[in-house]
Amino acid sequence: MRWLEVALRQTDKTAAFVLGLMLVVITLILFINAMARYFVGIAIVGGEELARCLMVWMTFLGSYLLVRTQGHIAIDVLSLVLGPQVQNTLKILISVLGVVISAYFFWLGLELTTRIFGSGQRMSSLPLARGWFYLAVPVGMGLMSVAFVQTLAATLTGLKQPVIADFSLPQQTNTQAEAVQEGNV
């Protein structure tokens, strides 16, 4: 399972970078489009559609990272009351259910994407096939399936899972924060 963890760590880093890049691109597109409409009186053709498409991709790639870091919203009251052995069993059950559901949605998304690409449909204001919009579903759900398999394996073997802090900015120490406040940095 070590090879899977190495591959997923690299996928995690790539997905986190791509997600950050998408957020910057969406922000720039919408900002420039709003400024162009307000100051020049023109709208950038395809800007909003591209931002919408990137938002869908962000949702599915972000869901993959949330599965990897156990960051999805969870109702954990029951698991906190239960003992460690029952918590472990519950985590195994959730992982198995996650694999089944995400694999099913991967299959449905793949069928839909294949059908859309095959139909030759184009986006309304961009010179791209509409299938690129739908491709986010099988890519995201496929990654989520693999992430749930890895979570299941980690739960069974005791491997450490990544946490959200692995993808955030480094934390400042108190002395660094004080130096910034005083203007010494």
Score class of each variant (00 low, 15 high):
97 L>M: 07
59 T>A: 12
1 M>Q: 06
6 V>T: 13
65 L>P: 11
93 L>E: 00
95 S>G: 09
11 T>I: 14
22 M>P: 04
79 S>W: 06
33 N>T: 13
65 L>Q: 02
72 H>L: 00
52 R>T: 15
115 R>D: 15
70 Q>F: 01
37 R>T: 00
83 G>E: 11
51 A>E: 01
118 G>A: 09
18 V>C: 11
82 L>D: 08
47 G>D: 06
3 W>P: 10
7 A>L: 14
68 R>C: 09
63 S>C: 13
102 S>Q: 08
10 Q>K: 12
91 K>I: 06
109 G>R: 13
8 L>D: 04
41 G>L: 07
63 S>W: 09
102 S>T: 11
75 I>P: 02
69 T>H: 09
89 T>Q: 05
86 V>S: 11
63 S>I: 12
103 A>R: 11
121 Q>H: 05
36 A>T: 10
122 R>H: 03
88 N>E: 01
24 V>M: 03
116 I>G: 07
54 L>R: 10
112 L>D: 11
6 V>Q: 12
107 W>Q: 08
70 Q>A: 11
119 S>F: 13
43 A>N: 04
86 V>L: 15
50 L>K: 10
117 F>I: 04
32 I>R: 06
112 L>F: 13
36 A>H: 02
99 V>A: 12
61 L>P: 13
85 Q>D: 15
79 S>R: 07
72 H>E: 06
2 R>Q: 04
20 G>D: 12
35 M>C: 01
120 G>C: 03
105 F>Q: 10
97 L>T: 05
122 R>M: 15
73 I>V: 05
3 W>Q: 09
22 M>D: 07
49 E>S: 11
106 F>L: 14
17 F>Y: 09
10 Q>F: 05
32 I>C: 07
